[in-house]
Nucleic acid binder design. Structure first.
Lengths: 141, 141
DNA sequence: TGACACCCTATAGTTACTATATGGTCAAGT
DNA sequence: ACTTGACCATATAGTAACTATAGGGTGTCA
């Protein structure tokens, strides 16, 4: 029976930690469930589904703010889903940008690493020496 | 003259924010500078060089802990630089792993995005529907 | 003397949790 | 009836690397 799930059961069914579920409730991502006589949270299959939704979004590294928005869209069925598309497009852009950035970083790091030729004294370490020189063409943040 | 730099001057010379410089001091990454009569921080060219080092490392997304280690290695000139190499190798690995992860995420997101065919009502939005379904094969972190 | 740029400290907020402390609930076993 | 143990509850603080805010002092120029 799926309508009196305790928090630990919900956790097991979603691969989510108990504390995280409580955290989502505080953050307004999961509606407050009913309580048992002993003050235990009692979840329904609605909660289960919503938590699956949240975890699916999180596994794609969407922010909790993004997820809040998506949940709002879901609850206004007459609105178009153009905003869902836009949110996703933006997220895809962000991920792609980050990949580009990390690739450049990786080659920079490999370049730096290549300056070392085996264990010498740290005072002569070319990596450390190189890190002391000014970064050219870098702007803040 | 480079031996009585005020914090704002140091900030301008390194492209670092004033508050960040003070933060590095609190964190023990920059030694405490002398003070003027009016209690202003007075930096030397040593500070300037060390801050360049820190910012260079940060531009490569090393953590402050990493940087603390590197500074320690620099100050123990008889130690070999093998540890510097190891730190860098680890960092390169982390970056490479993250790239792999983000690439897979990107294609997953593009797949999801492709399920939408233009603006329909949110209740039928295939993206939202898809996000409700269970993630298969994902384990907890 | 006042305006202004610049400096100071202390404290709280950001993100998405995680950790810690302290105590209550419930079912099974003795 | 009592205890053990798994499970649940709340409140608070910590994580990383800053950023923001409040409230006030310093130094120079007109």
């Amino acid at each position: 029976m799926l309508n009196r799930l305790k928090i630990g059961e919900l956790a097991r069914m979603t691969g989510c930690q108990v504390v995280t579920i409580r955290y989502y409730e505080r953050e307004g991502l999961l509606p407050k469930p009913a309580r048992s006589d002993g003050n235990y949270r009692l979840y329904t299959s609605e909660h289960l589904e919503q938590l699956h939704f949240i975890r699916h979004c999180r596994s794609m590294e969407m922010t909790l703010d993004d997820i809040r928005l998506l949940l709002k869209f879901r609850d206004t069925p007459e609105e178009s889903c153009r905003e869902v598309d836009a949110l996703l497009d933006q997220h895809i852009c962000d991920v792609a940008d980050r990949i580009t950035q990390l690739k450049s970083l990786e080659s920079q790091l490999r370049g730096l690493r290549g300056q070392c030729c085996s264990a010498r004294a740290a005072k002569d370490c070319r990596i450390l020496l190189s890190l002391h020189s000014e970064t050219e063409g870098k702007t803040q943040r």
